[in-house]
Design a protein around this nucleic acid. Structure first.
Lengths: 132, 132
DNA sequence: TATTGGGGTTCCAGCCACTGGAAGTTCAAG
DNA sequence: CTTGAACTTCCAGTGGCTGGAACCCCAATA
């Protein structure tokens, strides 16, 4: 199957698939006319990467996961270690974003947002005390 | 004051400060020896950018905020519009990350993580049904 | 049969927001 | 007088694509 079909079936843009081949993440056979030729196994791998990426794994981590995926004898502990590490990262990001949200939310809340120039958001960003 | 001092007082690495000057975000005076020379007002602006960046504003948004910051006559509504938009983005990011966390958390939870090769994480990523 | 249009191919450049490193000045301290 | 830190500029690289140019290939239509 051509790259367009593989793209539709995996959810990855053709450009991205070519890029992944470029960096040696996933290779494809070539048809006689030079077109890339994908098997359904290839599409499985592409979708695997697509899901892993959307779960927040970096491309390098995807490379690791992919080799664990194709290695029938790997220990599940190896996979769990990577995923657990990533889970921690996601948790830290959520905490950070939540703090951020609260801070900016406070600022927006206290800004009356009219034509006058007094603005607690600007004051907050510039470091002026908000008095609470 | 030299760039190192400004760096310490603003919380931005010297490289980043130079980069900001490069892209025309913040300029600095020059001393006779060619060193950048920062006033405390410059440091205020640097810290303003530092805070804005850490609150999730892009550099381009910082440029806008900075011009609102220095414009004594701007309407607070202008600032509020930018901040509110950004708040929505942060909320969307939190929702996305929370979904992600849940999904990966499930996978990790169900992986026994021992020496055997069966691994629900890999199965989940590859698209195999988890049966719930 | 010519041509149109929608695939595919390569390669090069750019995005964002830095960051690292090389090579050269300047300055303060010992 | 020398050492070492801090400063300068400039160039290149990061990650993960994405856009665009210029070309080839193939099926369908006038």
């Amino acid at each position: 199957m051509n790259i367009g079909t593989a793209s539709r079936q995996s959810g990855l843009p053709p450009k991205t698939i070519r890029y992944y081949e470029d960096i040696g993440l996933l290779t494809a056979d070539r048809a006689a006319n030079g077109y890339r030729d994908y098997s359904s196994e290839d599409v499985h791998r592409l979708r695997f990467v697509q899901r892993s990426r959307s779960l927040g794994f970096s491309v390098e981590e995807c490379r690791q996961l992919l080799s664990l995926y194709t290695d029938r004898d790997r220990a599940s502990a190896d996979v769990k270690a990577i995923a657990t590490e990533k889970l921690g990262e996601i948790d830290r990001k959520i905490v950070e974003l939540t703090g951020l949200r609260e801070m900016l939310g406070h600022l927006v809340e206290h800004c009356h947002g009219d034509g006058r120039p007094e603005c607690p958001i600007i004051d907050g960003l510039s470091g002026k005390s908000q008095g609470h």
